[in-house]
Simulated assay, not measured.
Amino acid sequence: MSIVAGAGHSGPTTADGVLPVDDHAEHPRSTPAPVRTPRTLAAAGDLLRALAAPVRIAIVLQLLVSDRCVHDLVDALGVAQPLISQHLRVLKSAGVVHGERRGREVVYSLVDDHLAHIVVDAVAHVEEGR
């Protein structure tokens, strides 16, 4: 059943013009959230802590655009090479980035886009002024 805007009504209606029934209108959060294991919650906390530093957020945003080596990140972010390397180690140990040796350089990339979405959404949230 598709939801379309009904004529003369600002809320959603079904394709046949009938207002949908909202069984949770009085208690929209009455369905409990799925329970996660303590191990899963701890791992998620570790991941969020790994993403918590401003330089690491900036690194993730750079890697979202393209794979980069350390000197590319130093140039783009204006941060000293030892500091970039330290932050990359944290991100790598958290499973956010991985490095691949190409000749004398190691090129870093994001493990997957899920993590980049967390960072992009957090930045967008702040830029919108909450």
Score class of each variant (00 low, 15 high):
S2V: 04
S2K: 05
S2E: 09
V4A: 03
A5W: 05
A5D: 06
A7H: 10
G8H: 05
G8D: 00
H9E: 02
H9M: 06
H9T: 04
S10V: 04
S10N: 05
G11K: 03
P12W: 06
T13P: 01
T14L: 13
T14H: 07
T14F: 11
A15Y: 05
A15M: 03
V18N: 07
L19R: 12
L19Q: 11
L19Y: 10
V21A: 09
V21D: 10
V21S: 02
V21M: 07
D22G: 03
H24L: 15
A25P: 01
R29I: 12
T31L: 08
P32D: 15
P32S: 13
P32E: 15
V35C: 12
R36Y: 14
T37W: 02
P38V: 13
P38M: 12
A43W: 03
G45Y: 14
R49P: 00
L51A: 10
L51S: 12
A53S: 12
P54W: 01
P54H: 06
I57Y: 00
L61W: 00
L61G: 00
Q62S: 06
Q62N: 02
L63S: 03
L64P: 00
L64K: 07
V65F: 10
S66L: 08
S66Y: 12
R68I: 03
C69M: 11
C69R: 07
C69E: 08
V70I: 13
V70A: 11
V70Y: 01
H71E: 13
D72S: 05
L73E: 06
V74H: 03
A76T: 10
G78Y: 07
A80Y: 08
L83D: 06
L91I: 07
L91F: 09
A94W: 10
V96S: 03
H98T: 14
E100H: 09
E100K: 07
R101G: 03
R102P: 04
G103I: 04
R104N: 13
R104P: 09
E105V: 11
E105M: 09
Y108D: 02
Y108I: 07
S109C: 05
S109D: 12
S109T: 14
S109L: 05
L110P: 02
L110I: 07
V111G: 09
V111T: 14
D113L: 07
H114R: 15
A116Y: 04
D121E: 11
V123K: 04
A124E: 08
H125F: 14
G129H: 03
R130T: 10
R130A: 09
